[in-house]
Design a protein around this nucleic acid. Structure first.
Lengths: 242, 242
DNA sequence: GTCTATATGCTGATAGAC
DNA sequence: GTCTATCAGCATATAGAC
């Protein structure tokens, strides 16, 4: 057929179609051939726009992360928005976005790499925590542990995974006598568990923050705990990954 | 060749070999052909022992979950071990086990299903929390949110995913000026973030527990919060998944 | 009941024509 | 920049040896 007058493909069109496929079916459903067919094009044509399938998935992941609302962090240094409020808003948005694209979550395991939205998010989280008064090393930890919680909450539904066959539990698992009802309540359980965990984390971190800031006040420049990378001044330096 | 005098394969041998392959390389490295080759056998022979590749991975996941230490929960009802101690011990063991088999974590997304070790763990967590005085609906949430945190912490390293090339960050991400150092401190950051999050969660949950128990004391039988599945007496009933 | 051999239709990726 | 042709490797199915 030869080269068309106008390109049939573009990175954006490929990524959008791939995301639609991931959402509609699964990560495994995205094959270069299927994706190409969906785009009305032959398989290898994709390689003119991306280095390979992994690069396409990487771009899809970053597109999804771009949907996360990080505007709350801007107010932390500026108008004195409490860091807790910013963190809460971000965590809820982050979870909501991942819940909207649940099949993409395992792809977060590969790391942030050079994805611009992932780095933008890390920068915002870490920057706001430092602005709020968290020592750098602690700010890193807080960003990381928040990410643990949010990504874990998006990695498949908890409640939805229980068989709704009561016979599975009878006799063998004495406390799971009503577990066959869990699948029905899936959404409510997943969400209320997330909210409960978020509040617990905020309460716990607020206590820690008070201690750290008080300690630091008496000893200016201290980092509030063991440095993550002893020997390097200031410790490690960031807040978040993907 | 026909049927050998003594079976060459067994479920255990297949699972052990598959796990070794997952750990040494990745989840994708496990193909029926490679696995069979590793076992000195031809590909389709595996189908005499498992329904398909998915069933093999499922068995691998359950084997891994069997390594998690849930003995701490036994003492909660019996000798009055604080639920916080039991939860902490379990969470640390759970994380440690997953950290020992990091490539398996994405496979946890598929849910607990009928895996015996996953159900055994759910039973232990939920049972202990209820024994400790948590209302059933709340106990479910606590188990779920703990799982969120632990599995999230095991889904790939945070710090290890940052490129160690300082040029990636310069100019564009103002707060990540030291992020290129993160990869070196990976292990320490991942662990200290986990510990910090665990302590924050325990502190937050302890506060909530006090409130819930106080409220319940005045109103025996109350469930301490909105029921996860309104209309069903007692709400949903379990604590943990995979 | 456990294996081997063979076959089908997928997959990611490459080479070269236009 | 897209095409066709082609490759090696994949999960799985089936038939038959013992």
């Amino acid at each position: 057929m030869g080269r068309p007058r106008r390109p049939l493909l573009s990175r954006d069109r490929i990524v959008a179609t791939a995301l639609a496929l991931v959402d509609a079916e699964s990560l495994e459903a995205v094959s270069t051939r299927r994706l190409a067919a969906e785009l009305g094009v032959s398989g290898p044509a994709l390689y003119n726009h991306f280095a390979g399938k992994d690069a396409i998935i990487d771009a899809v992941v970053d597109t999804v992360l771009g949907e996360v609302d990080i505007t709350g962090f801007a107010g932390v240094g500026a108008d004195g928005t409490p860091w807790q409020d910013a963190l809460r808003q971000w965590a809820r948005s982050y979870r909501e976005v991942l819940a909207g694209h649940p099949h993409i979550v395992p792809a977060l395991a590969t790391g942030p790499g050079r994805r611009p939205h992932a780095l933008r998010m890390a920068d915002a989280v870490f920057g706001a925590l430092v602005d709020a008064g968290w020592p750098r090393a602690q700010a890193t930890r807080v960003g990381v542990l928040m990410r643990y919680f949010v990504t874990g909450s998006a990695l498949g539904s908890f409640a939805g995974g229980f068989p709704d066959d009561a016979a599975v539990y009878a006799g063998t698992y004495p406390h799971l006598d009503r577990a066959h009802l869990l699948a029905d309540a899936q959404r409510e359980i997943d969400e209320s568990a997330f909210e409960a965990g978020l509040e617990a984390l905020m309460a716990g971190l607020t206590v820690r923050y008070a201690a750290v800031v008080a300690e630091r006040g008496g000893e200016p420049g201290a980092d509030g705990g063991p440095d993550p990378a002893p020997g390097r001044p200031g410790g490690a330096a960031t807040g978040q990954k993907s």
